[in-house]
Computed example of a mutant assay.
Amino acid sequence: MKTMFISLLLLATVAGTQAQDSTFTNPLLTSGADPYSYFKDGWYYYTHTTANSIVLWKTRSLADLKSAQHVTIYKPTENNAWSKDIWAPQVQFLRGKWYAYFAATGGKNVQHRMYVLENPSPDPMTGSWTFKGQVTDATNKWAIDGDIFEYKKELYMIWSGWEGDADKQQDIYIAQMKNPWTISSKRVRLSVPEHEWEKSGQKVTVNEGPQALMHGKKLMIVYSASGCWTDHYALGLLRFSGKGSLLDSARWTKHPEPIFQTSVANRVWSPGHNSFFKSPNGKEDWILYHANSQPGWGCGGKRSPRMQKFSWTADGMPVFGEPVAEGVELQKPAN
């Protein structure tokens, strides 16, 4: 009987371990704003804002981010135009090489511009990262949160920028690229804060953090709206008609309501600045985002990365539901 009891205890322990290994809970890390990941050859490469450098994580599953290998791939020298306030880095594999995009300043927000690094190594955790320079259109206006995507074999960049030189309003812009570090067209404004849910933030209204999202042949841009310093930070969506040029703003339609927002019931505030990824088996769609655990925490270091699976409507709209409460066990992305 004693032997049988021990065997049953071992079986229960193994079953419990297997169940634990197949689930995870949010948040993925205790802090980390503007989370982004890129999947290649069975690995996820993850970044978030660290302010003074670019740190890259590598993992088989983003659910295991806490134990993932990570290295600092770039720390700029002092006293240049891109040495401070490094925001929202993204590491992407484009045209056979790795590129790291980031916004940075020389010390004042008005100086924020987009920059890019290049690495020809097959593994971005190794090799040499070369500073390629600023990524800009002819206007050279304030710019943050760049995302590069490919559509019909052409590269495009979307970002958050100012129309002029004053910090009054952040809009979403798009431009075509001739290569991963050079914009080749005029910038086109696709979105401005116009609905009340986009304008929370006192004197400055915000559209930022744009991310391209493809579903079949349908192209969308999901962006963050309202000030991150408010509890009303939320996600909005732009849909491309599928006809004509991406650089024709008339071909884009804005969804009138937020598609992901604060859930007081689940105690998740200001979810936003998201990105997207597929499960390892390529069959599931997931959203990766940051959020606060308490109201009033704003844009500080308490924002933490989270993720959850989402679905689609029959007409191709993403359904994110509500931000999942902390501590709720979720199934890991399917292998």
Rank of each mutant, 00 (worst) to 15 (best):
I172W: 02
L94G: 08
G216M: 07
W269I: 00
S200K: 14
E78T: 04
I73F: 03
S275R: 04
Q134P: 09
E118Y: 10
A234K: 06
N109V: 14
S245I: 08
T50F: 02
A250W: 12
Y44D: 04
D64Y: 06
W82F: 09
A143I: 00
Q261V: 03
A103L: 12
L288I: 08
M307F: 01
S160V: 03
Q294T: 03
I287R: 01
F277Y: 14
P180Q: 05
V324P: 04
F93P: 00
G272A: 05
W142H: 13
S279C: 05
L9K: 06
Y99N: 07
D167Q: 13
T126G: 11
L235I: 11
G127E: 05
S31T: 10
A212R: 09
L10C: 10
P258K: 01
K254I: 09
L235H: 09
I259R: 03
K302C: 00
L28W: 00
A51Y: 14
D248R: 08
Q202G: 09
D85Q: 03
G42W: 05
V116E: 05
F102L: 11
W142M: 10
G272P: 02
I158Q: 01
F320H: 03
H255Q: 13
Q18N: 10
C299G: 00
F131R: 04
Y115R: 12
N274T: 10
L213M: 04
F24S: 00
S270P: 03
Q92V: 05
P35V: 03
I148F: 03
K40W: 09
I172H: 02
